[in-house]
């Protein structure tokens, strides 16, 4: 579909037409892929060849460059989903539904990766793959919530109805996740008085911060690219389902 340039609506209403949104954002996709690739290239170079080992953690500090971005994305994607859920409920914005649905599996994968890299980081530094400490436990709960939301999307037949119901549940989760985080922190301090974490710790030197920031942006752009692509697919899927319904209606 071509870009409708005659319309005199604001951009917010104009992209409410999913076809228009896809037409507008299609040219953005490949430049974003390029930025992501460059960021990953430079970030990985810095991570492996141009950053020192940490004086306490040694070489394992390099795991941080993949762990921290994934941990950040695990929460950022939920924020995106919650904002989209607001869009569904308040403005009934058709794209918000699409954004919500496309983000859920991505969030689940990034959360799983945060747990995976966290476990591999924990083994050499704490001596165990899994520690029931506050951060790891609440990330695990977040993963369960993502999986629940994905299961919910798959259970509904009618996607429009699903979007509104799931938006309600996503917002309940957004309210509840801080409470879960707080309760898990309270619980873990109660059960293990000696914390496994260094309190505070020294501030990171720039040589470690540079690769961290690069990888951080690389993963964020990766999410943006995949989210955009998945949204386009979802828009097309809905169009195909609409056509199928009309074809079935014409037969009947």
């Amino acid at each position: 579909m071509s870009i409708d340039s005659k319309s005199r609506q604001g951009w917010f209403s104009r992209i409410a037409h999913p076809g228009q949104f896809a037409a507008w954002t299609q040219p953005l996709l490949w430049p974003l892929v390029g930025i992501t690739t460059v960021l990953f290239g430079v970030g990985l170079y810095f991570a492996f060849f141009n950053s020192p080992q940490d004086y306490q953690m040694g070489e394992t500090v390099r795991i941080m460059y993949v762990h921290v971005p994934n941990a950040w994305l695990s929460q950022f994607v939920y924020v995106i989903m919650a904002v989209s859920a607001l869009g569904t409920l308040v403005w009934r914005h058709p794209l918000a539904d699409v954004s919500m649905k496309a983000a859920a599996p991505l969030g689940a994968v990034f959360t799983a990766l945060a747990l995976y890299t966290g476990a591999l980081w924990g083994r050499p530094t704490w001596g165990t793959f899994w520690e029931w400490d506050g951060r790891m436990t609440s990330t695990l709960v977040l993963l369960l919530i993502y999986l629940g939301i994905i299961a919910l999307w798959r259970a509904f037949d009618d996607q429009l109805r699903a979007a509104r119901v799931i938006a309600v549940f996503t917002l309940v989760g957004a309210v509840n996740i801080p409470i879960i985080k707080f309760s898990v922190d309270w619980w873990s301090t109660l059960h293990q008085p000696a914390s496994v974490f260094r309190a505070g710790g020294p501030t990171m030197p720039p040589s470690i911060l540079i690769p961290l920031f690069l990888m951080f942006f690389a993963f964020t752009f990766l999410f943006l690219v995949l989210h955009l692509k998945a949204m386009h697919t979802e828009i097309r899927r809905r169009r195909a389902m609409g056509l199928e319904r009309r074809a079935a209606g014409a037969l009947a």
Binding site: Q53, E59, R62, I63
Partner: peptide, 19 residues
């Protein structure tokens, strides 16, 4: 990569495979 190379390599391999 020091004595814990195996963990670093597996972390990156896992992330690359998953992504």
């Amino acid at each position: 990569l020091g004595p814990h190379a195996i963990f670093i390599i597996w972390a990156y391999v896992g992330v690359v495979v998953a992504v």
